[in-house]
Design a protein around this nucleic acid. Structure first.
Lengths: 225, 225
DNA sequence: CGACCACCTGAGGAACCGCTGAGCAGTCCT
DNA sequence: AGGACTGCTCAGCGGTTCCTCAGGTGGTCG
């Protein structure tokens, strides 16, 4: 699965590359519209993530040019604000989906996977660690046979843990992936949500799935605790 | 099942491609009449969706040219407004069916399926989820043995739910598929209709078929609740 | 042993989201 | 013309969710 990211903010572009590669996707980056258009025409991608505000050639134009040339690769547009103008224009020029900045990686990846699924090929994904099971498409989670009810934020966080199961993930990483990339609140929020998850599927089952690694972060046991 | 869509509005074209592919159809797109004619003569399609207002060569002309050349692939014409002139002319030039803009995906897909069925191959479809049953062709719906009376909009919405049963579908997706593609009203309408469906076939039967997934959308239980 | 630091916990307020009932316009049927 | 039905809008409500904050707990190190 190859993804092209056309984004001029270098920090964001690098972050996206890193994050998406962690999801098992092959990522190329273009830092302006002209390069993006060229790369998209020269290589076959499965999804294109396209910022609107770009130096040289706007995302709208890149999108329109691709469609004009008969290239119907799914395009996910990144719009600056929740101005419905942008949204409408994005879809007008032939984009398949859009996302309003700022967004979180987990949400971005979810949208990308939805687009890939539309293309038809992708197999249904079920994340699992021991007796912990999660279907991101239906947004359902089970511990053993019991279904667990999670809030959106809890779900995003558990999904992140599951994709990195067995690894130690720092609070900073969790914040960067699960919260909007410009979140600037109290990092304590991570502790609060870890506690929420533990209450929902550790305590009732008397099994410890999420370990605290003091000074480093948290780890979801690869075998589910 | 291969479908050719000849449509110059990029947003609409992209939307159609996305929607029809979700229905399991293989979709090609032509952005003007000349390309459309060429693609239609070069490749075997099962249905051609043909806009009338096209740059270069009108849908009428494309249709006439195809018929002239002995190509009798079913053609579904998209007419701009409910001017009966268009409708009559569409059928005159050899179209098999027409649809007035704006329309919704569900309606479009229904018409396409009707054309395919006329072509002979497709098997009759009955959608089912647990004790919930629907025959889109006869527009009938049952819960268990009891027939449920649905309004057209309710029917379209339930059909969409049934085709995506078990998955979480966002309000946006529902709007995009069940309502006309240029609908720009309050998304709250989806909630109103979900409530209508629940009143008709959840409440009387005391079974919850449509779940609310707060912050994400709705899900029709794969087993019908 | 005591101080500090990282993490945990409970409470609470604000924002958000979905639900609901009322009401209105348009259409179809009688 | 009148009535039933359908499709849609709107505003208010109530619960959920998100986040903050202040204090508690336990590990670690001087």
């Amino acid at each position: 699965m190859r993804v092209l990211v056309v984004e001029d903010e270098k920090r964001l572009a690098a972050g996206l590359k890193k994050g998406l590669e962690a999801e098992g996707l092959a990522v190329d980056i273009a830092l302006n519209g002209t390069d993006g258009l060229w790369m998209a025409t020269e290589n076959p991608y499965d999804v294109i993530v396209l910022d609107i505000m770009l130096p040289g050639m706007s995302g709208f134009k890149v999108c329109a040019a691709l469609r004009e040339a008969g290239n119907w690769t799914p395009i996910l547009m990144l719009t600056a604000k929740s101005g419905e103008l942008d949204e409408a224009e994005a879809l007008d020029t032939g984009a398949d989906d859009y996302l309003t900045k700022p967004f979180s990686y987990v949400v971005l990846v979810a949208h990308i996977r939805a687009l890939l699924r539309r293309g038809g090929r992708e197999r249904p994904t079920v994340l699992q660690a021991g007796d912990l099971r999660m279907d991101p498409a239906s947004r359902q989670t089970w511990r053993g046979e019991t279904e667990i009810n999670l809030t959106p934020r809890e779900l995003a966080m558990l999904e992140f843990f599951l994709r990195r199961r067995g690894e130690v993930v720092s609070k900073r990483e969790i914040l960067d992936h699960v919260w909007d990339y410009d979140f600037e609140g109290d990092p304590n929020i991570v502790e609060v949500y870890v506690r929420g998850l533990r209450n929902k599927f550790d305590r009732p089952f008397d099994r410890e799935a999420i370990e605290t690694i003091r000074g480093s972060g948290y780890r979801l046991a690869a075998d589910g605790g």
